[in-house]
Amino acid sequence: MARNENEVSAEAHVSEANGQRSGRRQYAFYPGCSSQKGASASNYLTSVESMCKVLDIKITEIPDWNCCGASISYAEAGELPRHVMNARNFALAEQHLPGQDIVATCAACWLGARETKERLEHSSVLLADTQEALKEAGLQIRAIPEIRHMVEVLIEDLGYEELKKPVKKPLQGMKFAGYVGCQTNRPFGIHGESFENPVYLDKLIETVGGEAVPYDQKVTCCGGALAFSEPDKAQAQIKDIIESAYDNGAEMLVTPCPLCQANTEIYQSQINKKYGTKFNMPVLYYSQLMVLAYGGTAKEAGLDGNVIRARKLEEFASK
């Protein structure tokens, strides 16, 4: 039995000083398949790269990283193959980018990798099997790097004060609903945040000068991968989220996860058809807001990648 995420997350924060060693913060970057060029979250990647440039964070892609399979592959993959996929990334990171934490931008990648790290560190049987499988690909695990979400890097390694310094154009007068969703929040969560009402996303919004509206669907699940396989159920959940954001005066939604972003954005037109609603709410990444507040262009913020265009922000960027 291993269910030790609390202990593990306590331990994870020992590495807080990581990267400060060399003056510049460096991380082994795990973009995940949805954030590659031409993939469904490629604009997330664009904005993250612009954001990191401003904040002097160096992210180096893990050479030849592979997709983790996400939560949904559980049935076909089984246990060990799933962990082995993550372990391959650990081994590659450790070999090519020794001493650097792995940072993921996708909540699902982050969760999957952390789960694997936790299981391997608590089960010598699983670890031994994993090593044997890795050998087939000429790899080996010595120490498993810390697995961080980009949001953790921002708020733990840099801190809100640091993030505020480069703000040139605060997003004044704009109302956002911070949509945290599930997988950056549960089961691990961001250190020090509650499961029921995490505030880091609201704080990030406020850091760049926007207004974070309170609403009651902040941590509601959007249906995740079931948006594909059970669209009616997932869309009912998505409808609750968007509706509550509108009811509380939000103009836009902000998310930390590519799947939340896609689910809450691209199905709005179908929900409108089904329920007679008139949803047309842009859904942004936190990193897009930051780039704009740091004075970046619409292109640097990846605004051209939003299916529901964020007209207000496009205008803001051109001023």
């Binding site: 590659q36 399979g69 049935a75 993959a77 193959p81 594909f228």
Partner: peptide
């Protein structure tokens, strides 16, 4: 079962080349 089908398809898709082909 649609979610089982999704699980099969997703895993086969992502392990075939190592990365998901959306």
């Amino acid at each position: 079962q649609p979610t089982l089908h999704l699980s099969q398809t997703f895993w086969r898709n992502c392990t075939k080349t190592g990365r998901v082909n959306e």
